[in-house]
Design a protein around this nucleic acid. Structure first.
Lengths: 252, 252
DNA sequence: CGTACGCTTGAAGCTCATCAAAATCTGTGG
DNA sequence: CCACAGATTTTGATGAGCTTCAAGCGTACG
């Protein structure tokens, strides 16, 4: 029986990038073949991370750049007055910690929402590689620049939408990203709780819950706790604003 | 009589970076001295730009990276459904167009809000410099990474605040940035109209206008059209949330 | 099997958007 | 220098949508 519960992805602990099933979703895919072997040799494939364990903490020096290999990772910041702000949910193949490259210090936290695996690239070695490869430099600039453009669009757009549209965007974005990773895009488990979703979308728990309920009543989705199926993705897209289709692809 | 109206800054058309009064606000300041001469030689110091003239358009190939030299430049995007979204206001010394480095294509527009000057760095030459200078590469990564971290914080924070706090943040941020550029931080002219402010803050014109009026009634500021003075910056900071003091510095 | 936590649902209040109209500013031509 | 037209800004009234506060429900886990 196909288990829709766990967001797992292969890539066994001791594999190399070459054999990793995530390669074409991973930034390593864009690294020239010769360099990739080098990358391969400096990457640490870490032991599994338990739910609620942190990858890094805010303020910590940037020692490694992380790539999610399985599970789901939440990044968040604590504002000076103590409020948590969820900045993203990261799926296998996604890089975390790029925003620390400038200051070499993590501005936020990263925590596993479920048992997860990840790869670490020691920043020192990575810098050495950067020094030697102009191509890699350019790749990093591209990644950062793309991240920036995309995040801006996401935030600018989402924050002007009403609750229903925000939730629709959230669901569709997650659905596509999971779909790309070999899951059923129309039936999956939410790794995050309502509180995290609400926080991420800039809404309250109650509003998220009500919105999901309404969407279920309207037969757009069905929800039972963390289990979610999309019953009418086209209608969801209509609510999310079909003009933002690009946002609902594989990023965020 | 000291004219608080025009946001001008010296840096006469034919000067070099070395003599530019903006140098310590400009990214060129962080470029090693030897490289700076090279930079100096590839920079085009453009003729003045009239109000409402564009520096570049969305979709256009990235030919040059721009640095504002005087005046104020607005960047904005047109969402697929035709709405304008103001993404930033840029003062002398600030770089525009970094978010195009990834795709080498501008995601948005840049337009002068008043008569302005700017410098252009041809992207092709700049890439050559990048190829030769590891230090410059690292500087660019830093700039992008810092931009990203900051923009995220700004957006995440602002979009959760109520109208009064958003407007306070806007005013204080502008005030500090102008202050750094040798203006009176407590008395200046807004280069942008209410529509742009509202759009930037994710509010309506009416709400911005009402908020400014209320703030005036409360003797926090005084406004006469585009003329603005801060009568009680401490109280404004209290409204903006003193915990976000870092946001109100020289960025955004 | 029961307790605790997360989720859902309900009712009231508040902020901001919307619609509408008056006031003010800007620039132009007489 | 003044008068006028168009644009921008201010102000007012109303309503929608979200938050807040407050219970209830369900599910997971000891």
């Amino acid at each position: 029986m196909n288990d829709p519960i766990s967001i797992k992805q292969s890539g066994s602990p001791q594999t190399s990038c070459r054999d990793c099933s995530l390669l074409d979703l991973c930034f390593a895919h864009s690294v020239a073949e010769s360099r990739r072997d080098e990358l391969d040799s400096i990457i640490n494939r870490k032991r599994p991370l338990d739910k609620d364990q942190h990858l890094f903490h805010a303020g910590q020096n940037l020692k490694t750049i992380c790539v999610v290999r399985s599970g789901t990772v939440k990044t968040y910041q604590i504002s000076p007055d103590g409020d948590e702000m969820v900045t993203g949910f990261h799926l296998p193949g996604e890089m975390i910690g790029l925003d620390a490259i400038g200051s070499e210090r993590h501005p936020g936290f990263a925590v596993a929402l479920e048992d997860s695996h990840y790869c670490e690239i020691p920043f020192r070695d990575f810098k050495n590689m950067l020094d030697k490869s102009q191509q890699l430099n350019h790749l990093m600039l591209q990644l950062l620049s793309a991240d920036m453009a995309e995040m801006r669009e996401l935030l600018m757009v989402i924050n002007r939408m009403e609750a229903r549209a925000r939730v629709a965007v959230f669901i569709l974005n997650l659905s596509r990203r999971l779909g790309r990773r070999g899951h059923d895009a129309n039936r999956f488990r939410l790794a995050m709780d309502r509180r995290d979703i609400a926080n991420y979308l800039g809404l309250t728990i109650e509003t998220v819950s009500r919105t999901l309920s309404t969407m279920q009543k309207d037969e757009l989705i069905s929800v039972h706790g963390k289990r979610l199926s999309l019953e009418n993705p086209e209608a969801l897209l209509e609510i999310a604003g079909p003009e933002h289709q690009d946002l609902l692809l594989d990023t965020g």
